[in-house]
Write a protein that binds this DNA or RNA. Structure first.
Lengths: 187, 187
DNA sequence: ACCTGAACACCGTTCAAGT
DNA sequence: ACCTGAACACCGTTCAAGT
């Protein structure tokens, strides 16, 4: 089995970054949560940039796996599109947290290069999945599925951001409903 | 005329916060940009929270004034709705910056109460203006204009966030086009 | 009225050194 | 292999002192 300290650090860092961003990640608090000293984290991750990149990589890997299993459960693409907003809703449910990569999109100027690349990978995973499902559902024409996928991804990220700023999950639900009513998402 | 240092501090703080957020604001760098010492800022603003609240208040006041003058220039509400995304585009044009309040929406957990309130006021200003213009344009039914206003605001904030994370204004334009194609915004 | 030097307490980060 | 003490650089804030 893998190092439990390393896994514990990754999990704690992810939770913290979803609430306070990359800049809000600090080794003292992180270490205390895990039960070691701040300097010990550097044994597992050579720098904050490495930790950040590892956290985001794990994050999009988990997201990709979750999306794949959703598709495996329900082969109906329209059903998958209806359930997609739940992925972002879960972060709000977990202590009004955000998508890690939305927070880091805001922090982009201050992100190490390795972290930036993982943040882009997260977006790519989501857009590729949405694009595939949109094609299968024949919601839009073939060459419109990727632009539409990007629009859905961006709009949902925005809905989560705004709902977070009011600590109001019902606002998130209302925004998703409005997207459906407007025709951005299938009803 | 008003204190030029105070105004210079407000302007510099706004630019910095649009690129690095509230947590990225620091009095030493800010002072250097203005040409005074960090301690001098405290003469004008009793604390960082006060500075932050003043910056955001000024920001939404300027935004509100800009939106009003747009409406005064063009009484055509559809034309106003077409031009609204330009407001957010301008931040990206200015060094890939973000809407101050989108960044602070992400930072919400770490914001002083006074700053939180100003961030909400910014959203309120935008939603109220959009709602008014949507009503005038008869784009949606009367009781749908506020939910739709919120949806447009959230979706555009999301488009800006995603475009920033790629430093790609053309992606922002493409997202707005997709929103129009999907029916979220009038074409 | 407006600004500054110097200091304080604190925190993120690093690294040589421990076992 | 895994962890830590101690140090460094930095930051928000204060305050007595300057003009």
């Amino acid at each position: 089995m893998s190092s439990s300290s390393k896994e514990a650090i990754l999990a704690a860092a992810r939770r913290t970054a979803q609430a306070h961003g990359y800049s809000g990640l600090n080794f003292r608090d992180l270490a205390e949560e895990v039960g070691i000293k701040a300097a010990s984290i550097y044994y597992h991750f050579p720098s904050k940039a490495d930790l950040g990149a590892a956290v985001v990589r794990r994050y999009w890997e988990d997201t990709a796996a979750g999306l794949e299993s959703m598709l495996a459960e329900t082969s109906d693409p329209i059903r998958c599109l209806r359930r997609y907003p739940d992925v972002f809703r879960k972060s709000l449910e977990a202590g009004n947290r955000m998508c890690l990569c939305s927070f880091m999109a805001a922090e982009y100027d201050d992100l190490p290069e390795a972290v930036k690349q993982e943040v882009q990978a997260f977006a790519d995973v989501n857009v590729a999945w949405l694009s595939r499902v949109l094609s299968a559902a024949v919601v839009v024409g073939a060459e419109e599925s990727e632009p539409r996928a990007r629009a859905i991804f961006a709009a949902i990220a925005g809905a989560q951001l705004i709902a977070r700023s009011r600590s109001d999950i019902s606002l998130y639900d209302a925004l998703i409903d409005s997207y459906r009513a407007a025709g951005l998402l299938p009803t």
